[in-house]
């Protein structure tokens, strides 16, 4: 098998890609959800499509619970579960509006879903009535992004608000923060070391923040500009649509509507790498569990409304050993 550094997945979805997620157990399984109403499972090592599941409307997010079970949600307001082995599918539950984000908590064995109906719902598929809890975040707080690490849940909503919960006690927020970024949040991802999270906005900026509310730790938070192009002396600002943390090194990648993927060392505040430009906006990013692969969804994200664009595809990049390693000897954040 050819070991190219980067290749494109065969048989990609036929419409925009909303999310790419690697399997937490098997590092070469990749789940791709798309606006073409499908959720597709690929084997990146073989570069082949392994399975495809159907929704009734565009799928906005997907996740694995274990190697064989997959959950996804989208514009049809439901969260569906698919069993890869048996190809059984079922509806786990419904929201009142489209489901924007779906995550799985290994510790609680529950699905966490966020929707444009401003609620977070927890689902426990082990129970007959899967809905374990439904939590109103606030008025007008449509969920735009969420991220889970251990028991911490960070929810980014409309109105530039962030809500931090402990999923063991969802009835109250641990913290409520206003975004450090002045513009609409696009993505939020928690650091694998559970210290904090990174968030990105439509204004070509990424903020790195920490959970610990003590002033010394809060003083460490920062934001930086990225994904901007100077055209005719003017800075063109692109939305940063995707973030992903490298599980091995704790460095993170950001993907913008400029079609560029950057790797950053959050601790030392340096850029480690920039990959050559992709055909169109980056919609989603994910690292595989062993840090070997980076899946890059190059798919137009509608930031300029209707327009012609290159076909949507998923690129898989082999990550070299030192590619995402923090530069300085000091351990990464």
């Amino acid at each position: 098998m050819q070991q190219q550094q980067q290749f494109e997945l065969v048989d990609p979805p036929s419409d925009a890609i909303s999310s790419v997620v690697f399997c937490p157990t098997t590092s070469n399984h990749l789940l791709v959800s798309s606006w073409d109403k499908t959720v597709k499972l690929y084997d990146v090592e073989e570069n082949s499509l392994k399975a495809s599941f159907q929704h009734k409307a565009s799928v906005l997010d997907c996740c694995f619970s274990d190697g064989a079970h997959v959950f996804s949600g989208g514009l049809d307001h439901c969260i569906k579960s698919f069993d890869i082995n048996t190809t059984n599918e079922s509806i786990v539950g419904l929201h009142d509006k489209a489901v924007k984000c779906v995550e799985y908590s290994l510790e609680k064995h529950m699905i966490v879903s966020g929707s444009w109906d401003c609620t977070i719902r927890l689902w426990d598929v082990r129970k007959k009535d899967a809905l374990s809890g439904q939590y109103e975040i606030g008025e007008g707080a449509k969920v735009f992004a969420l991220s889970l690490v251990y028991y911490k849940l960070v929810v980014a909503t409309a109105g530039r608000q962030f809500f931090i919960y402990d999923i063991r006690n969802m009835s109250e927020t641990i913290q409520k923060r206003e975004s450090s970024l002045k513009f609409m949040t696009r993505c939020v991802k928690c650091m694998p070391n559970r210290q904090g999270y990174a968030s990105s906005s439509i204004e070509g900026r990424v903020a790195v923040e920490f959970f610990d509310p003590s002033p010394e730790i809060q003083a460490r938070k920062y934001a930086f500009k990225c994904h901007r192009k100077v055209i005719d002396g003017v800075d063109t600002v692109y939305p940063v649509n995707a973030l992903a943390f490298n599980p091995t090194h704790g460095t993170f990648a950001s993907g913008g509507a400029d079609g560029v993927v950057n790797i950053w060392d959050g601790f030392n505040k340096k850029r480690l790498k920039q990959y050559p430009q992709y055909p169109t906006s980056i919609a989603s990013l994910d690292f595989s569990k062993d840090g070997q692969y980076l899946a890059i969804a190059s798919s137009y994200t509608f930031e300029e409304g209707e327009k012609d664009h290159p076909p949507d595809s998923v690129f898989i990049r082999h990550i070299g050993e030192n590619e995402c390693k923090p530069r300085v000897v000091a351990s990464s954040a």
Partner: peptide, 18 residues
């Protein structure tokens, strides 16, 4: 959000397909 905009454009926001 971009997704909402797109969904609106496709008029998929309000219709419950199920």
């Amino acid at each position: 959000s971009f997704e909402e905009k797109r969904a609106k454009a496709l008029e998929l926001l309000e219709v419950k397909l199920i």
